[in-house]
Simulated assay, not measured.
Amino acid sequence: MLKLGPGRLGASISAAFGCLLAAVVLVGCTPASETPPTLSSGTSGPRIASSPSPIIPSASATSGEPPLGSAQLLGSAAAMTVLAVGDSHARALGVGMANVSPNRLNLIINDAMGGCGIMESTQYKLSFSDLTDTPSACGTWPDRWAEDVKKYHPQAVFLTTSNWDYNPQMIDNSGKLMTLADEPFRKKFDANMDRAINILSASGAKVFLENSVPNPLMSGVMAAVAARHPGNTVLLDLQSQFCNGQVCPPVIGGITVNDESGHPFGESQNRLGRWLLNQIANTLHAAS
């Protein structure tokens, strides 16, 4: 059983239902924060120092200080069209990729929406709020993402909803809040992820997933999702950029990892944006 400490994972629940960044133009929102529920996970992740980075370590992680992304953008990480979709963490990392792509070095289309996952739920419950109706806009992802692919023809798509879909949600008429530890929730999450990957890869784009929620249950589920789509997906080890196997420090190399809402910001956001673009570029060039 994993129990998280006093820190918080971010979840944007703005009245506008999130942020939209299209052609690297940002319409802002203010992310709120959440404390994730406790899920049955078999084994726990690393110790969270002070406030957590929403990351679990990989088996190959070392005991040294995590690298926190990349200081330099590879020369090959250019002239790419990358679509970012998912929750507020996808939004934040999409902003990081845009920040380090000045003068349209890369075109980053950010259609991630804070406060929205992939579960098409009717209600959700955050630790600091009452039961809340899920905004209807959250259920538009199949049509929106299909239109994004048709309009922009991305070479790569960065998809993550794990931070939001870690929350208890009402997904059917049972009247019960469920999490990934419940079989009906897990089945729907798997089915919707499969559907999303099929939509996002329809024009040949590679879909990049990540493993950032600090719970081995979610990490294992994301690994299984990627394994079901070996030709279309890549599972990025984003966790290793924050954690070293024992601890997820709130400050790495003098850089604060997350803001008060639990989202990467500032130089942390930019370093992670560079790292994502470098990983995407390496994958695309290896496949060409």
Rank of each mutant, 00 (worst) to 15 (best):
P154N: 06
A156T: 02
F158R: 01
F158N: 01
L159M: 09
T161R: 02
S162W: 05
D165W: 01
N167D: 11
N167M: 10
N167C: 08
P168S: 10
Q169G: 00
M170I: 08
I171C: 00
G175K: 07
G175D: 06
L177S: 02
T179Q: 03
L180P: 02
A181Y: 04
A181P: 03
E183R: 04
K188P: 08
K188G: 05
A191V: 07
M193H: 11
R195S: 13
I197M: 04
N198D: 15
I199W: 04
L200N: 05
L200P: 06
S203Y: 13
S203G: 13
S203H: 15
A205E: 07
V207Y: 06
F208H: 08
E210M: 14
E210H: 14
N211C: 10
V213W: 13
V213I: 14
P214K: 04
L217C: 10
L217A: 13
M218K: 11
M218L: 15
S219V: 15
G220P: 09
A227C: 11
R228V: 10
R228I: 11
G231A: 13
N232A: 15
N232P: 00
N232F: 11
V234T: 13
L236S: 06
L238N: 12
L238D: 09
Q239I: 15
N244V: 02
N244S: 08
G245Y: 03
C248F: 03
C248G: 14
V251W: 01
G254H: 03
I255H: 02
T256D: 08
V257C: 00
E260T: 14
S261D: 10
G262H: 03
H263K: 01
P264C: 02
F265R: 06
F265T: 07
G266R: 05
E267M: 05
S268Q: 01
S268Y: 04
S268L: 01
